[in-house]
Design a protein around this nucleic acid. Structure first.
Lengths: 343, 343
DNA sequence: CTAGTGAATTTAATCGATTAACGTAATTTA
DNA sequence: TAAATTACGTTAATCGATTAAATTCACTAG
């Protein structure tokens, strides 16, 4: 900046004002400064800017993503997170922010990160243990939760109506004449999203006068493997079922694989319903009928909300519920009147 | 830090030395400092640390990922990038670095980012226009390229032997008796990886005395859509083909979908070979036979190399070629002797 | 007894910006 | 015309660390 100032024949203060426009600067000086900036290829040093008094912002937002090691692969837990992360990055960049990612097992070290890097705000994707949320509050910075049912009033929330989505899915399957419907889900106890989706399934059954049966609910982690696992457990059991409602596309994909391996055809022998509408889901064979949520929109809204809260610290806590809709593809078929599908 | 110093009854300099250990500090003082740090929950301010003289490092590395808008979805171009990104983040964190992501259309603004944020190094995934590499050199910071065939000696490179991988794939298909083999790829001109993969396909054909036919090469973007597109173009053409070698799993997945829609069965009517071995590939129906590359390893090696270069600025430029291997699943089948498959 | 040595601290400059406070000159207002 | 205001710049303090240089103190050696 000194060089720029010298080249423009002014002091650094004038340069700073010329850039920020926080004080009037003559057109002529401004032009000379802009000229010098261009010639010298000057880019302001964010570290200095952050450190320097008053403004205090780093234009950095942190994103916490669950990470697991799946079969030796280090990666974001699934495609779902990648999609959100992509949209967050783009949206943030358009608003002049950068994104620091931190896949995490939710240890308190993330809190230190927020302080260390002067994060302006944080977006937390997914569910974590309670203590995590307790810890995060201490940071005193704006935080937006995506897909969390943490009911702490401190946080903003962006999510969908999971129960309703699951209700839609189940109702659709019921409307297609199915009555013996299994539910594949993540860990109900730990995961509020899964709890809601189970509730939606239950509501739909109730509405159609179908008894809810505990043994038709298959829990596991939310990954391909446990989709397979659940499908195998289902097939090994004595339960005869004509349809599966999965609480996540990724589970449905795993299940489809397991059915395929055993010669059970989707949708002819068994109908399969997903949830999320990942990009891949439309390219499966058959295409996965599923509940669509606008994943990118989730990321965008979270960014917008976060930045609004950054600029408006007193903003009351918001809760954004994004729409879901059912998308029909080929994985659900009318139940045959004579219900003789042995699964 | 001042508070810590006061609490420990010393000056900030002593605290700094106690933390860094760059000067001898008495055990007693060190203990008092550590105690104070714990009590006050002190976390060093990276902005100040970065700004402050000499050390000059931000412990931040940037990752450039191609980003596209696919059908309204903002996301990382495909699952492949997500997997690498995940492994980069984890590996970097373990080594005390944080990751700043920047999906980009490769404009020069990324250069400014590097300066602004005092990035210690950058990992660039994928191929970009030449000018991008010219620009990046100016930043004068360590840069590792993943999957680039930019031959500028300024950069480190981490990649696989794409030609060999593709050769393996094609040879496998040939060994299964196929002779009319199409090749689905990305843009050959713009993308060095694709160029190499095409070369490997060509080499294998040559070795087996099969004529290379231009009309059997289908180019497009590397996404599901263009996999479908290529498959449709193939099926609409008069070419009778019994197998497809795709230069990316994502293309193979799209192709499989298109075949399915038209009632062409994989692998019975047509064999399909992928490349990359994305996580999803093993869960398709049938499982995709493909060339496996260790995607996570790519990320890890890139991080290791980058950090090594950060600590060792004079490090000569490295080129790391990671291994590939063929994984057999269900999408390739022996060609029927009487070649009557009309595709 | 005194200079020399080394360990443990402190002092103070520095990094690259921002910004309050202050100084001028030109313009407006009373 | 004097006073007040405005426009445009400069000076210098500041943010929170690091670190070269100076200082203090205890101990040893001659």
């Amino acid at each position: 900046m000194k060089d720029v100032a010298k080249a423009a024949g002014v002091t650094t203060a004038a340069v700073s004002y010329a850039i920020s426009g926080k004080r009037p600067i003559s057109d002529e000086t401004r032009k000379r400064v802009e000229q010098a900036i261009k010639e010298l290829g000057y880019a302001p040093n964010m570290a200095a800017r952050t450190l320097s008094s008053a403004s205090r912002d780093s234009k950095l937002i942190g994103v916490v993503v669950p990470q697991t090691e799946g079969g030796g692969r280090l990666m974001f837990q699934n495609q779902f997170y990648s999609e959100i992360l992509g949209s967050i990055e783009l949206c943030a960049r358009q608003k002049g922010y950068h994104v620091l990612i931190s896949a995490t097992d939710a240890n308190e070290s993330y809190l230190m990160l927020a302080k260390e890097r002067n994060l302006d705000g944080i977006i937390v994707i997914g569910m974590y243990p309670d203590e995590f949320y307790q810890q995060m509050k201490k940071s005193q910075i704006p935080i937006v939760l995506i897909d969390s049912y943490c009911n702490d009033h401190y946080y903003h929330n962006v999510r969908i109506d999971d129960a309703y989505g699951s209700y839609l899915a189940t109702r659709y399957v019921l409307e297609n004449g199915h009555r013996d419907i299994a539910f594949f889900s993540g860990r109900i106890k730990e995961n509020g999203v899964m709890k809601k989706r189970l509730a939606g399934y239950r509501d739909a059954l109730l509405e159609y006068g179908v008894e809810f049966r505990d043994e038709l609910v298959f829990e596991g982690d939310i990954d391909y493997k446990d989709g397979i696992e659940s499908a195998n457990r289902l097939m090994d059991s004595r339960n005869s079922v004509t349809a599966v409602v999965a609480a996540a596309d990724i589970l449905a994909i795993g299940a489809a694989k397991a059915f395929y391996e055993r010669g059970v055809r989707v949708p002819d022998d068994i109908s399969l319903m997903g949830f999320d509408d990942l990009e891949i889901s439309q390219y499966l064979t058959p295409g996965l009928t599923t509940v669509k949520q606008e994943i990118s929109l989730k990321g965008e809204k979270a960014v917008e909300l976060l930045i609004r809260n950054i600029n408006e610290p007193e903003l009351t806590k918001q809760e954004l519920i994004l729409p879901v809709s059912l998308v029909e593809r080929g994985s659900v078929k009318r139940a045959v009147p004579a219900d003789n599908a042995r699964t």
